[in-house]
Design a protein around this nucleic acid. Structure first.
Lengths: 342, 342
DNA sequence: CTGAAAGCGCTTACAG
DNA sequence: CTGAAAGCGCTTACAG
């Protein structure tokens, strides 16, 4: 149990020169003679010297670490997003600390507190559905720790944002259902306060309107982002006197719940009820019948959010303006929404 | 953009006392007068002082951070495991850095390098299936950074280990299939070098033997831990002249692949082929028919590994001996292995 | 080209 | 009870 990391002091002692010189030689400073440099670098290598990042952090007030907060890492969408974050972070020499909010404002705030304490250089976050309040993020910004929002974005915070064109995704999915002959299209939406919920709902609504179809209050239900939520809402929908012939699900888990409930209830997809949802493709394809999916470029989303964040961190002065990037979703039609005739 | 964290120096200046006194007052040292203490603590609170953990790390050579390496965080088993790690770590005042090896020895080594550099206090790891070599972990230990293995454990490293009773899980699952009348039971196993692969294979084999059934080489195939792997091996199995009437899958994804392939090929589960697999219950239940599953206490596994690690970190002297904890798996029978007669 | 000194934020023996 | 000093590992103006 020898915790003997080599230090600059040690190298200096061995070579009988000053710490300053060693430090400069290691950083390849032009003011050190080639000869000294070589001596120092050779010794450092043979001793496996690596600079103590903690000392550096203390000095530079920079940790080369960024934080990510997502609602839940077990969710494929977010784990893929984290992949994108790590990809960029890693390639630009940063490390990543991952936090889960579990959709709780409380946990989100404790994460931001930890981030502030740890002097993390910046944060990318998909806010918890509970969070209407952005104060904890504003505080971070005021401490000089930039924050970039992705997926779930809110107006309350002035910063870069990366999101998916939810409106268009829902619009196109709804149009697809209409084109397949569905006339009573329901939507199980996500939790109320989240912006993506609103956008998707609007896309759904506008598509109906465009095609002269009625918008029925009773066909729109809000649900937490869980399978149980989707299942329960589906029961509710199918119990209606005027039951839907298609359902649009707002998330992976909700859509799984819809699929599950319909099977339980004995409905055939797509003949009795067509199903489409915002869903990871590998999950959607696992189902029987495979579910038509609006897929999101999650990895890319993580990448873009992170590169915006690192730019913010590395630039001296705040940017002229903050940008909001809108990525496109993808419609993948599978059996669950193909009417028998086709 | 004011990066003005309050420091001890600042408090000392405002109160016109020395840094030493402030430091001691904050740590509630008995050698400081109640009066001074109160003054200091009150001011610190009103200024939202929080000690700089980086300075503390430099001083104490401790970061209060542990590392976790898993093959893939998108895998439910591991994300749940990480939940367990964070649960314990958090409650004992540690933070967690998460690394993914993507099953590559290379990535695993770069993670351990980073961990050593960052002076992380300890590491829990489920080794990559590629890793037969444990040198990078041994090195960590030699630097005084304890390592605890979970899930995938190997003999090459002397330390605490936490694993599931794979042997028994596979044994019981196989017995279950036999009791259901299956007579030609195949096994799609995981990658060769991993210990759990061997254990599960043995459990399968011994169960067959116990019931006087033949062990057929051609009914055992190794697969990477992917859905595609499971699918392809299933094609291979079902193409045999003497095809199996049951398949035991060695992991979530492999089992998904089996299910998928059987459906593609037009076999009914469980009538034509019974299926059971090591699998997360929420995934297994999503399928149609729902898959019988050997479930593992993943969250608990993360908890136990972490508490063993923290004990190691916090004890001065190395433990008298290293222990290996073996957790029990659970057999959850669902439709995929219930023969029609039942 | 090289070194002594100060300092990042903190703690803790050592004096008094 | 309180303070000055040294030190964790490093960098960098300031001298020379």
């Amino acid at each position: 149990m020898t915790k003997t990391s080599v230090t600059i002091k040690e190298i200096a002692r061995l070579l009988d020169i000053s710490k300053s010189t060693v430090s400069r030689a290691l950083r390849d400073s032009s003011e050190i003679s080639e000869e000294t440099k070589k001596k120092v670098i050779d010794l450092a290598e043979s001793l496996h010297y690596s600079p103590n990042p903690i000392a550096l952090s203390l000095l530079k007030q920079r940790t080369h670490t960024i934080g990510v907060i997502v609602p839940d890492i077990a969710n494929r969408f977010y784990s893929s997003t984290i992949g994108g974050v790590e990809d960029i972070a890693y390639s630009r020499g940063y490390h990543t600390m991952i936090y889960q909010s579990h959709e709780l404002l409380d946990r989100e705030m404790s994460a931001t507190r930890h981030i502030a304490q740890r002097r993390v250089d910046g944060l990318v976050v998909a806010i918890a559905s509970q969070s209407e309040n952005m104060d904890h993020f504003v505080q971070l910004q005021e401490q000089g720790i930039p924050v970039v929002l992705f997926d779930r974005v809110l107006d309350g915070l002035e910063t870069h944002k990366v999101r998916v064109d939810d409106y268009k995704g829902a619009f196109e999915a709804t149009e697809h259902l209409i084109s397949r002959g569905c006339r009573r299209i329901a939507h199980i939406a996500g939790p109320q306060p989240v912006s993506i919920t609103r956008n998707r709902l609007e896309g759904y609504r506008d598509a109906l309107q465009k095609h002269g179809m009625e918008f029925q209050e009773e066909w729109v239900l809000h649900s937490p982002i869980t399978q149980e939520g989707g299942t329960e809402r589906t029961y509710q929908l199918m119990a209606l006197r005027n039951r839907p012939d298609a359902i649009l699900g707002a998330s992976d888990r909700i859509t799984m719940g819809i699929h599950w409930a319909l099977r339980q209830l004995g409905y055939k997809m797509p003949d009795d009820v067509a199903v489409i949802g915002f869903c990871d493709l590998s999950l959607a394809s696992l189902m029987d019948p495979p579910i038509s999916a609006i897929t999101q470029p999650s990895f890319e989303m993580g990448q873009q959010a992170t590169s915006l964040l690192l730019d913010l961190i590395e630039s001296k002065n705040p940017p002229a303006h903050y940008e909001t990037r809108v990525l496109q979703s993808n419609l993948v039609i599978q059996k669950s929404s193909l009417k028998a005739s086709e």
